[in-house]
Computed example of a mutant assay.
Amino acid sequence: MNILALLHAGTPGRQAPLLSKSGASRTAFAQSLSHLVDLGLLERNPGHGHPLRPEYRLTPKGVEIAAVAGKINAAVTEQAHGPILRRTWSVPVLAASYKPRYFGEIKNELVSVTDRALSQSLQQLQKSRWLVRNIDTSKNPPRPIYQAANQGFEIAQAINLARV
């Protein structure tokens, strides 16, 4: 996500500037680039540069997703919250909890998430105050209900606006 946001912000598509601005290790950076190319979000710029130092550019699909990634990065003001964003289920859970949802409703929207992974993500997001857990006492037995809050709400809003 960080690479997409950097390209959207105007960072040159060569590996050296992207690597230095992303702060990732070379191995993680190379894996991320390969994954983004496989997803069809990035492509090698065929008319540029040396074969050993390729330049990358966003595909049309990548441009849309990079705009969302830029909004997500802009919503995260503290450097300490970066690791939370990089967790596998943080962003999808925030997107699913844009409006108040029960655990089961979030799980149904994120089909491949396990109960344990969802529970851990919800706890981590609560600790960072990106998610609020309230108890719905109108149900018997009372059930917890989750909703994105603060920076988590801004991230959820950016994602859900892109869906429309």
Rank of each mutant, 00 (worst) to 15 (best):
I106W: 03
G82W: 04
S90R: 02
L42K: 10
G62N: 04
L118C: 10
G40A: 09
V111S: 14
A69V: 06
T27D: 10
L122F: 10
R53F: 12
R86Y: 05
R87I: 00
V111P: 04
P100D: 01
K21N: 06
R53W: 11
A16R: 12
G10S: 06
P144F: 03
V37I: 12
I135P: 07
A69L: 06
L161P: 02
L125P: 02
A117K: 12
Q79F: 07
H35S: 14
V164M: 09
L33W: 01
S20D: 09
L4Y: 04
R57V: 12
R129K: 15
L39C: 13
Y98A: 11
W89M: 10
R57D: 04
E105V: 09
P144N: 09
Y146N: 03
L52Y: 05
S128M: 08
V76P: 05
A162S: 15
S22F: 00
N108Q: 14
L4R: 04
A24W: 02
K71Y: 06
P54A: 08
N73P: 00
K99L: 14
L85K: 00
A75G: 07
D115S: 14
R53P: 01
G152D: 02
G70N: 09
A9Q: 10
V63Q: 14
T11G: 05
T77L: 10
P46Q: 13
L122M: 13
I159T: 03
A80K: 03
R143V: 00
F29N: 11
I84P: 04
Q147I: 13
H35E: 13
I155S: 00
E64F: 09
P51R: 12
A28N: 14
A69R: 02
L36F: 03
L125G: 02
S138A: 13
P92N: 07
F153P: 05
I106F: 08
A24D: 04
P142Q: 03
Y102T: 09
G13T: 00
T114I: 06
P144G: 12
H50Y: 10
I135M: 14
S32M: 11
L52F: 07
